[in-house]
Design a protein around this nucleic acid. Structure first.
Lengths: 217, 217
DNA sequence: CAACAATATGACAACTGATTCACCTTTCCG
DNA sequence: CGGAAAGGTGAATCAGTTGTCATATTGTTG
């Protein structure tokens, strides 16, 4: 369906859809639609949400939607890009003052859980995007993972964490956060974030076994 | 939408849809349709896949579908239940002969990666089910997590792993496997499973930091 | 083997929801 | 001011889907 890479011009930050807004008013309207899409996709889900739901929430007519976005799929793309920037920026800000990697992991996890709780749409929009167009999703995690990897590499250099395959670790860590967020920030808040963070910090410090520090191979 | 719990009779193993097959032929046909749905959802995804795609793959007429399933959503439910049983049974069999928890984790992770590689439809069907009906997904992971938790509790009792919040650990571990599977079994097989397993085993044995075994609080 | 139950067929009615388009309103600027 | 560009409208179109049904085939049983 999406074979013709050139037929359906992939909008980028530089080329956002049919017509980028050229007026303050236009920019405002576009932003309203984007926000409405976030809310609508977040509660109804991508497939159940109709363009009409989005435009109704934004308070504009259906046709207006197409002034700024080529279609449903494109607004999703845009949305994930946007939300991705926001989380990354937020998390980065939360861990700048960490004194070492372990502290950064703790702060990062806590901030992520909190962020997800306050912005539940992020999870749903992102996960659904995976099946609309896998590249949206891969881009998100590869961007995320790249920054994460750099941090782990630094920590290794500084001797804060042991040598090892940091790329594999990054994916393991992202998976952990993801599931912990889903279970404890979105489904049921029956365990305080601090306890979750402590449990994971303990895993990072001491592993799972009692008799740590043996040779690993 | 799915408010009326009684209106849309949720099919269970005991009550599978409109009419359970009463003949060997019927049972075969139903199984063919189920398998076809797995393949079709696995490659096209739940939403892009039409009933007609499923019946075509199964080699039956469209109407036949409704002899055994109430609709698209119900066959998905059935499918996840089925596939869930299969993975759990497979993984359980792979770790029975593990001598301790660490070995069980290693074998379990390796088996999971391998299974996902051989049955990529599992991931997609399961993840998409999440947004069709969240309960399908929650049931799967709660069932999975329950068994996992029991194993960790045993390991704690035997002194194989340190005391801690095993429930949180379970979700962290499931998340890890999930992401590692997605990245290294489904997306790119550019890192051998053994190396992944070793990296995670090292994390379990020694944690992430160099100076393990301090007090955790 | 007759009569009945279970299965299977495939055309199609009914519906959903994305996108288009001809036209109107607001804003900008020489 | 006046006209052009940008923004906005919403009814109509159109493609694609689900689920139904009258009918045909296959299997079962007394």
């Amino acid at each position: 369906m999406n074979t013709a890479v050139n037929a359906k011009q992939n909008a980028t930050a530089a080329n956002p859809g049919p017509g980028a807004p050229k007026t303050a008013r236009g920019a405002r309207t576009r932003a309203r639609i984007l926000k409405a899409a976030e809310d609508t996709f977040g509660t109804l889900g991508y497939h159940r949400a109709g363009i009409s739901d989005i435009t109704r929430a934004a308070g504009v007519a259906q046709g207006t939607f197409y002034t700024y976005f080529a279609g449903k799929e494109e607004i999703l793309r845009e949305l994930v890009r946007d939300m991705g920037h926001q989380v990354r920026a937020h998390l980065a800000a939360e861990i700048v003052d960490a004194r070492d990697r372990l502290e950064a992991e703790e702060k990062g996890l806590r901030a992520f859980l909190q962020y997800l709780f306050e912005n539940p749409a992020l999870y749903r929009v992102l996960q659904e995007a995976q099946f609309v167009d896998e590249s949206i999703y891969r881009d998100y995690y590869e961007a995320f993972g790249k920054g994460y990897l750099r941090m782990l590499a630094n920590a290794t250099r500084k001797g804060e964490i042991r040598a090892g395959n940091n790329e594999v670790r990054v994916w393991a860590l992202m998976g952990m956060s993801n599931f912990l967020g889903l279970r404890y920030a979105l489904w049921e808040r029956d365990v305080p974030f601090d306890e979750i963070v402590d449990t994971i910090a303990d895993l990072f410090r001491n592993g799972l076994t009692l008799d740590g520090k043996e040779k690993s191979s």
